[in-house]
C-alpha cells in the first residue's frame, strides 16, 4: 500500500525550545489517521512542516511521495488544510474566502460547495469579522471538503463546532474516506477519533510514543474487570500484570466483589483464578481511548 505521509526522525527547534525530537508518522493512503497528543506536544509543528511552512532541522518527511518543502506548491494542489484557529479577512465574505481557497487549490466542486454550505448551515454572505469561531471553522471546512484533493490535513478542526455540526463533520469525513481520500486528523475530541480513525499516532514532547490501529493500542493496555464471586478470591494479587486490585465482601454472604485492571497478556491467568472462586457475574471493559490517552499524557519522561 502506498503511504500518503511518511515522517521519520523529524527534529525542529525554535531557539532553545525543542518542538520535535525525532518524530515518526506513517499515514497510509485512504485511511483516516488520528494524530493525538497533549497541548504543545508538536502536532501543529509537524503539520506545518508537512505543509512546507516550516523547514525541519533534520529527519525525513514525504507527502504523497514528494518533499513538502521543495515541492510545496505542486503538492498543495492535492492537499486541503484546515487550521485549528481560522483567521479570516475582515472585509471578505465567507463565500468569497471559500471560492478563493478553492481556486488557489485548483478546483472546487460547485454542487458539493452548495450542499456543504447547506449542511453546515453557514451563511456565506457574512463578512469575516462577523463570524463566530465555529462559523469561521465552517468556512475553512466547507472550502476543504469541497476541494478536489487527495489529502486533507485537519488540525483540531471541530473545537468550535456545536454537537450537531460535529455530527455533520463526522459524516463528511466518512464520505471523504469513502471517496478514497486520506485524512490526517489532529484532535482532542476522543469520541470523534474513536468514531472516525482507522489508526492513530500519539505523540508526546515531540516524539511518537504509540502508533497503530485502535485495537492494536488497546491490546497493549489494560482491560478493566469487575466480577462478583461466590467465594473468596485467591491469589489474584500474586498474578503479574494485575493492578488497582480492590476486593470487597458482599454483605450477608460469602461472596466478594472484585475490581481490577489487567494487562492483556495476563487476562487468561486472571480469568482462571476468578473461575476457581466461582463467578456469579463478570464484566470486562476494553480500555477507553481516554484511559489510553491519560496513561501516555501523564507518563513522566
Amino acid at each position: 500500500m502506498t503511504k500518503a505521509i511518511t515522517v521519520s526522525g523529524l527534529h525542529k527547534s525554535f531557539g532553545k525550545t525543542q518542538a520535535l525530537a525525532g518524530l515518526d508518522l506513517d499515514v497510509e493512503a485512504g485511511e483516516v489517521h488520528g494524530f493525538l497528543g497533549p497541548n504543545g506536544s508538536g502536532k501543529s509543528t509537524t503539520i506545518r512542516v508537512l505543509l512546507g511552512l516550516l523547514h525541519a532541522d533534520s529527519g525525513a518527511a514525504q507527502l504523497l511521495g514528494r518533499d513538502p518543502w521543495t515541492d510545496a506548491v505542486e503538492l498543495h494542489r492535492r492537499v486541503a488544510y484546515v487550521p485549528g484557529d481560522v483567521t479570516l479577512w475582515r472585509n471578505l465574505s465567507g463565500g468569497e474566502v471559500i471560492d478563493l481557497y478553492g481556486k488557489l487549490r485548483g478546483g472546487l466542486d460547485k454542487s458539493r460547495r452548495t450542499e456543504l454550505i447547506d449542511r453546515f448551515e453557514l451563511d456565506p454572505t457574512k463578512k469575516g469579522r462577523t463570524y463566530s469561531k465555529g462559523n469561521r471553522q465552517k468556512v475553512a471546512l466547507v472550502a476543504a471538503f469541497a476541494s478536489d484533493v487527495d489529502l486533507l490535513i485537519l488540525d483540531e478542526p471541530t473545537s468550535g463546532l456545536d454537537p450537531l455540526m460535529e455530527e455533520v463533520f463526522q459524516r463528511c469525513v466518512e464520505e471523504e474516506r469513502d471517496r478514497g481520500r486520506t485524512i490526517l486528523l489532529s484532535s482532542h475530541i476522543l469520541s470523534e477519533v474513536e468514531e472516525l480513525c482507522d489508526r492513530v499516532s500519539i505523540i508526546r514532547k515531540g516524539r511518537t510514543v504509540e502508533s497503530g490501529s485502535l485495537s492494536d493500542l488497546r491490546h497493549l493496555t489494560r482491560t478493566s474487570v469487575t466480577a462478583e464471586l461466590t467465594g473468596a478470591p485467591n491469589g489474584l494479587a500474586s498474578i503479574p500484570g494485575v493492578h488497582d486490585l480492590a476486593i470487597q465482601q458482599i454483605q450477608n454472604s460469602q461472596g466478594h466483589r472484585v475490581r481490577l485492571q489487567v494487562e492483556a497478556d495476563q487476562l487468561n491467568a486472571v480469568l482462571r483464578s476468578l473461575s476457581e472462586s466461582g463467578v456469579r457475574s463478570l464484566t470486562s471493559k476494553p480500555p477507553t481511548l481516554e484511559e489510553l490517552f491519560l496513561r501516555h499524557y501523564q507518563e513522566t519522561a
Binding site: L92, G95, D99, L100, T125
Partner: peptide, 8 residues
Amino acid sequence: PGPAQGRL
C-alpha cells in the same frame, strides 16, 4: 453582507 460567491 457580502457576495455569497467570490470572484477572487
